[in-house]
Protein backbone atom coordinates (compact mmCIF):
# COMPACT_ATOMS: atom_id res chain seq x y z
CA UNK A 1 0.00 0.00 0.00
CA UNK A 2 1.35 3.38 -1.02
CA UNK A 3 1.11 5.97 1.78
CA UNK A 4 0.46 5.68 5.52
CA UNK A 5 -2.86 4.83 7.15
CA UNK A 6 -3.77 8.53 7.28
CA UNK A 7 -3.75 8.90 3.50
CA UNK A 8 -2.91 6.23 0.96
CA UNK A 9 -3.76 4.97 -2.50
CA UNK A 10 -7.02 3.42 -1.23
CA UNK A 11 -8.27 6.64 0.37
CA UNK A 12 -11.70 7.79 -0.77
CA UNK A 13 -12.94 10.97 0.85
CA UNK A 14 -16.38 12.23 1.77
CA UNK A 15 -16.61 15.89 2.80
CA UNK A 16 -19.10 16.65 5.57
CA UNK A 17 -20.42 20.19 5.30
CA UNK A 18 -19.37 20.12 1.65
CA UNK A 19 -21.24 23.16 0.37
CA UNK A 20 -19.80 25.61 2.91
CA UNK A 21 -17.44 28.38 1.83
CA UNK A 22 -14.24 26.66 2.96
CA UNK A 23 -15.19 23.13 1.99
CA UNK A 24 -16.41 23.92 -1.50
CA UNK A 25 -13.14 25.71 -2.25
CA UNK A 26 -11.15 22.74 -0.98
CA UNK A 27 -13.20 20.34 -3.11
CA UNK A 28 -12.66 22.51 -6.17
CA UNK A 29 -8.91 22.70 -5.60
CA UNK A 30 -8.49 19.04 -4.69
CA UNK A 31 -10.43 17.94 -7.76
CA UNK A 32 -8.13 20.03 -9.97
CA UNK A 33 -4.99 18.60 -8.35
CA UNK A 34 -5.97 15.02 -7.53
CA UNK A 35 -9.10 14.18 -9.51
CA UNK A 36 -11.22 11.44 -8.00
CA UNK A 37 -9.75 11.46 -4.46
CA UNK A 38 -12.94 13.07 -3.15
CA UNK A 39 -15.90 10.81 -3.78
CA UNK A 40 -18.84 12.72 -2.37
CA UNK A 41 -20.05 15.57 -0.24
CA UNK A 42 -22.74 15.73 2.45
CA UNK A 43 -24.81 18.78 3.37
CA UNK A 44 -28.27 18.30 4.88
CA UNK A 45 -30.86 19.91 2.62
CA UNK A 46 -28.56 20.15 -0.37
CA UNK A 47 -28.75 16.52 -1.57
CA UNK A 48 -28.72 16.17 -5.35
CA UNK A 49 -27.17 19.58 -5.82
CA UNK A 50 -24.84 19.83 -8.78
CA UNK A 51 -22.92 22.85 -7.52
CA UNK A 52 -19.81 20.82 -6.72
CA UNK A 53 -17.58 18.61 -8.82
CA UNK A 54 -18.66 15.65 -6.66
CA UNK A 55 -22.16 14.30 -5.91
CA UNK A 56 -23.83 15.86 -2.87
CA UNK A 57 -26.06 13.90 -0.46
CA UNK A 58 -28.35 14.91 2.41
CA UNK A 59 -26.96 12.24 4.72
CA UNK A 60 -23.82 10.18 4.90
CA UNK A 61 -25.89 6.99 4.84
CA UNK A 62 -27.25 7.92 1.42
CA UNK A 63 -23.72 8.58 0.20
CA UNK A 64 -22.55 5.21 1.54
CA UNK A 65 -25.46 3.45 -0.22
CA UNK A 66 -24.86 5.14 -3.54
CA UNK A 67 -23.93 2.46 -6.10
CA UNK A 68 -21.37 4.67 -7.86
CA UNK A 69 -19.36 6.06 -4.95
CA UNK A 70 -20.63 4.45 -1.74
CA UNK A 71 -18.22 1.55 -1.55
CA UNK A 72 -15.20 3.79 -2.19
CA UNK A 73 -15.79 6.08 0.78
CA UNK A 74 -13.54 5.28 3.74
CA UNK A 75 -12.32 8.67 4.96
CA UNK A 76 -14.26 11.71 6.15
CA UNK A 77 -13.26 15.34 6.11
CA UNK A 78 -15.35 17.45 8.49
CA UNK A 79 -15.95 21.12 7.74
CA UNK A 80 -19.08 21.89 9.78
CA UNK A 81 -19.36 24.70 12.40
CA UNK A 82 -18.01 23.93 15.90
CA UNK A 83 -21.40 23.19 17.45
CA UNK A 84 -22.13 20.54 14.78
CA UNK A 85 -18.81 18.69 14.87
CA UNK A 86 -19.83 16.13 17.50
CA UNK A 87 -22.93 15.26 15.47
CA UNK A 88 -20.89 14.96 12.27
CA UNK A 89 -18.31 12.68 13.90
CA UNK A 90 -21.03 10.42 15.32
CA UNK A 91 -22.61 10.20 11.87
CA UNK A 92 -19.24 9.13 10.43
CA UNK A 93 -18.57 6.59 13.17
CA UNK A 94 -22.04 5.10 12.74
CA UNK A 95 -21.40 4.84 9.01
CA UNK A 96 -18.27 2.84 9.96
CA UNK A 97 -15.82 5.34 8.57
CA UNK A 98 -12.51 4.59 10.24
CA UNK A 99 -10.42 7.64 9.31
CA UNK A 100 -11.86 11.06 10.12
CA UNK A 101 -10.32 14.52 9.89
CA UNK A 102 -11.81 17.39 11.91
CA UNK A 103 -10.78 20.63 10.24
CA UNK A 104 -13.11 22.82 12.30
CA UNK A 105 -11.49 25.07 14.90
CA UNK A 106 -12.97 25.97 18.30
CA UNK A 107 -14.66 22.64 18.95
CA UNK A 108 -15.86 22.75 22.59
CA UNK A 109 -13.49 20.73 24.79
CA UNK A 110 -16.39 18.71 26.15
CA UNK A 111 -17.41 17.65 22.66
CA UNK A 112 -13.79 16.74 21.87
CA UNK A 113 -13.72 14.52 24.97
CA UNK A 114 -16.93 12.72 23.94
CA UNK A 115 -15.49 12.26 20.45
CA UNK A 116 -12.20 10.90 21.79
CA UNK A 117 -13.85 8.35 24.07
CA UNK A 118 -16.17 7.22 21.28
CA UNK A 119 -13.26 6.93 18.85
CA UNK A 120 -11.41 4.65 21.28
CA UNK A 121 -14.49 2.44 21.70
CA UNK A 122 -14.93 2.16 17.94
CA UNK A 123 -11.24 1.78 17.14
CA UNK A 124 -11.21 4.60 14.60
CA UNK A 125 -8.54 7.13 13.66
CA UNK A 126 -9.51 10.76 14.10
CA UNK A 127 -7.18 13.65 13.35
CA UNK A 128 -8.00 17.04 14.91
CA UNK A 129 -9.93 19.19 15.71
CA UNK A 130 -8.14 22.13 14.24
CA UNK A 131 -6.33 19.85 11.79
CA UNK A 132 -5.42 21.27 8.42
CA UNK A 133 -5.31 17.79 6.92
CA UNK A 134 -2.62 15.57 5.51
CA UNK A 135 -0.26 15.65 2.57
CA UNK A 136 1.43 12.63 1.03
CA UNK A 137 3.16 13.79 -2.19
CA UNK A 138 3.17 10.28 -3.66
CA UNK A 139 -0.61 9.98 -3.22
CA UNK A 140 -2.39 13.30 -2.76
CA UNK A 141 -3.86 15.31 0.00
CA UNK A 142 -6.71 15.65 2.43
CA UNK A 143 -7.93 19.14 3.25
CA UNK A 144 -6.56 22.51 2.24
CA UNK A 145 -2.96 21.80 3.28
CA UNK A 146 -0.60 23.25 0.70
CA UNK A 147 -3.25 25.46 -0.87
CA UNK A 148 -3.82 25.85 -4.57
CA UNK A 149 -0.25 25.11 -5.55
CA UNK A 150 1.19 22.53 -3.16
CA UNK A 151 4.33 22.08 -5.26
CA UNK A 152 5.64 25.30 -3.67
CA UNK A 153 6.06 23.45 -0.38
CA UNK A 154 5.84 19.75 -1.14
CA UNK A 155 8.06 17.42 -3.05
CA UNK A 156 8.36 13.69 -2.51
CA UNK A 157 11.00 12.66 -0.01
CA UNK A 158 11.65 10.95 3.28
CA UNK A 159 10.48 13.37 5.98
CA UNK A 160 7.50 12.89 8.20
CA UNK A 161 6.34 16.29 9.44
CA UNK A 162 4.01 16.33 12.43
CA UNK A 163 2.73 19.65 13.66
CA UNK A 164 -0.01 21.06 15.83
CA UNK A 165 -0.01 24.12 13.63
CA UNK A 166 -1.37 23.68 10.12
CA UNK A 167 0.40 26.73 8.77
CA UNK A 168 3.76 25.68 10.17
CA UNK A 169 3.36 22.22 8.63
CA UNK A 170 3.46 23.76 5.18
CA UNK A 171 6.00 26.44 6.09
CA UNK A 172 8.30 23.70 7.38
CA UNK A 173 7.86 21.49 4.32
CA UNK A 174 8.76 24.47 2.17
CA UNK A 175 11.80 25.39 4.25
CA UNK A 176 13.10 21.82 3.91
CA UNK A 177 12.26 21.63 0.23
CA UNK A 178 14.40 24.71 -0.44
CA UNK A 179 17.26 22.92 1.34
CA UNK A 180 16.96 19.54 -0.36
CA UNK A 181 14.63 17.41 1.75
CA UNK A 182 11.23 16.24 0.53
CA UNK A 183 8.18 15.07 2.40
CA UNK A 184 6.87 11.55 2.75
CA UNK A 185 3.90 12.63 4.84
CA UNK A 186 2.91 15.91 6.50
CA UNK A 187 0.20 15.66 9.10
CA UNK A 188 -1.36 18.64 10.87
CA UNK A 189 -2.65 17.10 14.08
CA UNK A 190 -4.20 20.32 15.45
CA UNK A 191 -3.63 22.15 18.70
CA UNK A 192 -6.72 21.27 20.71
CA UNK A 193 -6.46 20.27 24.36
CA UNK A 194 -7.98 16.88 23.67
CA UNK A 195 -6.19 15.79 20.54
CA UNK A 196 -7.48 12.67 18.84
CA UNK A 197 -4.15 11.96 17.18
CA UNK A 198 -0.98 12.86 19.06
CA UNK A 199 2.69 12.83 18.07
CA UNK A 200 3.07 9.52 19.89
CA UNK A 201 0.07 8.05 18.07
CA UNK A 202 1.66 8.94 14.73
CA UNK A 203 5.14 7.70 15.69
CA UNK A 204 3.69 4.35 16.78
CA UNK A 205 1.79 4.11 13.50
CA UNK A 206 4.88 4.66 11.29
CA UNK A 207 7.67 3.19 13.42
CA UNK A 208 8.27 0.36 10.94
CA UNK A 209 7.48 2.30 7.76
CA UNK A 210 10.67 2.28 5.64
CA UNK A 211 9.50 5.40 3.79
CA UNK A 212 10.10 7.51 6.89
CA UNK A 213 13.78 8.54 6.96
CA UNK A 214 13.41 11.27 9.55
CA UNK A 215 10.78 13.05 11.61
CA UNK A 216 10.27 16.77 12.04
CA UNK A 217 8.13 17.49 15.05
CA UNK A 218 6.71 20.94 15.76
CA UNK A 219 5.41 21.45 19.26
CA UNK A 220 3.80 24.13 21.38
CA UNK A 221 3.32 24.87 25.05
CA UNK A 222 0.40 23.27 26.86
CA UNK A 223 -0.59 19.69 27.56
CA UNK A 224 1.84 16.79 27.51
CA UNK A 225 1.73 15.41 23.97
CA UNK A 226 5.34 16.40 23.22
CA UNK A 227 6.46 14.74 26.46
CA UNK A 228 4.61 11.58 25.45
CA UNK A 229 6.59 11.51 22.20
CA UNK A 230 9.82 11.91 24.18
CA UNK A 231 8.74 9.02 26.39
CA UNK A 232 8.05 6.80 23.40
CA UNK A 233 11.55 7.49 22.12
CA UNK A 234 13.28 6.93 25.47
CA UNK A 235 11.39 3.68 25.93
CA UNK A 236 13.09 2.49 22.75
CA UNK A 237 9.91 2.04 20.72
CA UNK A 238 10.63 4.69 18.11
CA UNK A 239 14.17 4.62 16.76
CA UNK A 240 14.23 6.91 13.71
CA UNK A 241 15.86 10.38 13.77
CA UNK A 242 13.65 13.14 15.19
CA UNK A 243 14.28 16.88 14.88
CA UNK A 244 11.97 18.94 17.09
CA UNK A 245 11.16 22.57 17.62
CA UNK A 246 8.99 23.70 20.50
CA UNK A 247 7.67 27.23 20.18
CA UNK A 248 6.41 29.50 22.94
CA UNK A 249 9.32 29.90 25.35
CA UNK A 250 8.54 33.63 25.45
CA UNK A 251 5.13 32.90 26.93
CA UNK A 252 6.83 31.87 30.14
CA UNK A 253 7.71 35.52 30.68
CA UNK A 254 4.01 36.44 30.63
CA UNK A 255 1.36 36.00 33.31
CA UNK A 256 0.23 32.39 33.72
CA UNK A 257 -3.00 31.64 31.91
CA UNK A 258 -2.35 33.91 28.94
CA UNK A 259 -3.88 32.06 26.02
CA UNK A 260 -2.11 32.61 22.74
CA UNK A 261 -2.33 30.56 19.61
CA UNK A 262 -4.13 27.26 19.87
CA UNK A 263 -6.69 26.40 22.53
CA UNK A 264 -4.32 23.81 23.90
CA UNK A 265 -1.34 26.17 24.00
CA UNK A 266 -1.90 27.31 27.54
CA UNK A 267 0.24 26.72 30.56
CA UNK A 268 -1.88 25.83 33.57
CA UNK A 269 -0.60 25.53 37.11
CA UNK A 270 2.97 25.28 35.88
CA UNK A 271 2.21 22.35 33.57
CA UNK A 272 2.94 22.24 29.85
CA UNK A 273 5.81 24.72 29.69
CA UNK A 274 7.79 24.88 26.47
CA UNK A 275 11.08 24.66 28.40
CA UNK A 276 9.95 21.44 30.12
CA UNK A 277 9.11 19.89 26.78
CA UNK A 278 12.47 20.96 25.37
CA UNK A 279 14.21 19.46 28.41
CA UNK A 280 12.44 16.13 27.99
CA UNK A 281 13.31 15.92 24.30
CA UNK A 282 16.87 17.06 24.97
CA UNK A 283 17.17 14.30 27.55
CA UNK A 284 15.95 11.78 24.97
CA UNK A 285 18.60 13.17 22.61
CA UNK A 286 21.41 12.11 24.97
CA UNK A 287 20.87 8.48 24.05
CA UNK A 288 18.66 8.48 20.97
CA UNK A 289 18.74 10.31 17.59
CA UNK A 290 16.76 13.33 18.76
CA UNK A 291 17.73 16.99 18.28
CA UNK A 292 15.87 20.05 19.51
CA UNK A 293 16.35 23.22 17.46
CA UNK A 294 16.75 26.42 19.48
CA UNK A 295 15.53 28.58 16.60
CA UNK A 296 12.87 27.37 14.25
CA UNK A 297 15.09 27.58 11.14
CA UNK A 298 17.74 25.44 12.84
CA UNK A 299 15.50 22.43 12.25
CA UNK A 300 17.25 22.10 8.92
CA UNK A 301 20.73 21.75 10.42
CA UNK A 302 19.26 19.38 13.02
CA UNK A 303 17.96 17.02 10.35
CA UNK A 304 21.27 17.30 8.51
CA UNK A 305 23.32 16.50 11.60
CA UNK A 306 21.12 13.50 12.38
CA UNK A 307 22.26 12.07 9.06
CA UNK A 308 18.93 12.11 7.25
CA UNK A 309 19.96 12.02 3.57
CA UNK A 310 18.92 14.81 1.19
CA UNK A 311 16.32 13.80 -1.38
CA UNK A 312 17.48 16.37 -3.92
CA UNK A 313 19.79 19.38 -4.22
CA UNK A 314 19.89 22.43 -1.96
CA UNK A 315 18.45 25.42 -3.88
CA UNK A 316 18.77 28.25 -1.37
CA UNK A 317 19.79 31.78 -2.27
CA UNK A 318 22.56 33.11 -0.05
CA UNK A 319 20.76 36.38 0.63
CA UNK A 320 17.04 36.86 0.04
CA UNK A 321 16.14 40.32 -1.29
CA UNK A 322 12.67 41.80 -0.76
CA UNK A 323 10.05 41.28 -3.43
CA UNK A 324 9.02 44.92 -3.10
CA UNK A 325 10.60 47.78 -1.21
CA UNK A 326 9.38 51.30 -0.50
CA UNK A 327 12.09 52.14 1.98
CA UNK A 328 15.50 51.83 0.30
Amino acid sequence: MKGPVYLNENTGIVVIGATGREASQVIKESEALYPGIIKAGVTPGRGGSSELAVPVFDTLFQAKKDPAVGSKINTALIYVPPASVLDAVMECLDAEIKVIYIITEHVPIRDSEIIYQEKVRRNAIIVGGTSLGCFVPSVGRIGAIGGKDPTVAFRQGGLLIISKSGGLTVTTAEMFKRRGWGTYCALAIGGDIISNTTYADVLLQVKDDPNVKGVVMLGEPGGSYEEQAAELITSGVFKKPVAAFISGRFQERMPEGVAFGHAGAIVERGMGKATDKIERLDAAGKKYPVKVAFYYHELVSAIESLGVPRDFEDSTAAHVAPLYSTIR
Binding site: S165, G166, G167, L168, E220, G248, Q251, F260, A265
Partner: peptide, 12 residues
Protein backbone atom coordinates in the same frame (compact mmCIF):
# COMPACT_ATOMS: atom_id res chain seq x y z
CA UNK B 1 -1.02 34.67 11.09
CA UNK B 2 -1.71 31.11 12.20
CA UNK B 3 -1.28 29.68 15.70
CA UNK B 4 2.19 28.32 15.05
CA UNK B 5 3.28 31.09 12.70
CA UNK B 6 2.20 33.79 15.16
CA UNK B 7 3.96 32.15 18.07
CA UNK B 8 7.18 31.58 16.17
CA UNK B 9 7.21 35.15 14.86
CA UNK B 10 6.44 36.74 18.23
CA UNK B 11 9.06 34.55 19.85
CA UNK B 12 11.78 35.52 17.40
Amino acid sequence: FGGGGSTVTAET
